[in-house]
């Protein structure tokens, strides 16, 4: 089956923007992890995760984001999460992850 996740990367002035398209779940979380870790290690900058086109994320995807946040913060940077759809925003609220990331 083709991957249900597409990841686009865009270099900005003060952050790399990662645009997520589709679904982050048990079958795509590893792909997201590898991609984000490589961006963080390579660019050593802030990350902005644009979720305008993210339709679904599960606890494994959220776990990946927390792991990436830890790594980003070790370098003194941060992760901005933007344009969450309502259902996904609810997950951030339930899990209190909205307090961990900078929500836009």
């Amino acid at each position: 089956m083709p991957s249900q996740l597409k990841i686009l990367e865009e270099q900005g002035e003060d952050a790399v923007t990662i645009r997520l398209f589709g679904e982050v779940d048990i079958s795509t979380a590893q792909e997201l992890k590898e991609r984000l870790y490589s961006v963080v290690d390579e660019k050593k900058t802030n990350l902005r995760i644009d979720c305008s086109n993210l339709d679904y994320i599960d606890s494994m995807g959220l776990g990946v984001l927390v792991g990436v946040l830890k790594r980003v913060r070790q370098g003194g940077k941060n992760i901005y999460v933007s344009n969450l759809k309502e259902g996904i925003r609810k997950l951030f609220l339930i899990t209190s992850l909205d307090k961990l990331f900078i929500m836009e």
Binding site: D25, I26, Y56, D58, S59, M60, E86, G87, K90, L91
Partner: peptide
């Protein structure tokens, strides 16, 4: 719609647990 999303998410999480 929002309740449908809740059910979807919950089912998916239980499946994750079984598959893992």
């Amino acid at each position: 719609m929002d309740v449908i999303d809740d059910v979807k998410v919950a089912i998916s999480e239980v499946c994750n647990k079984l598959v893992k």
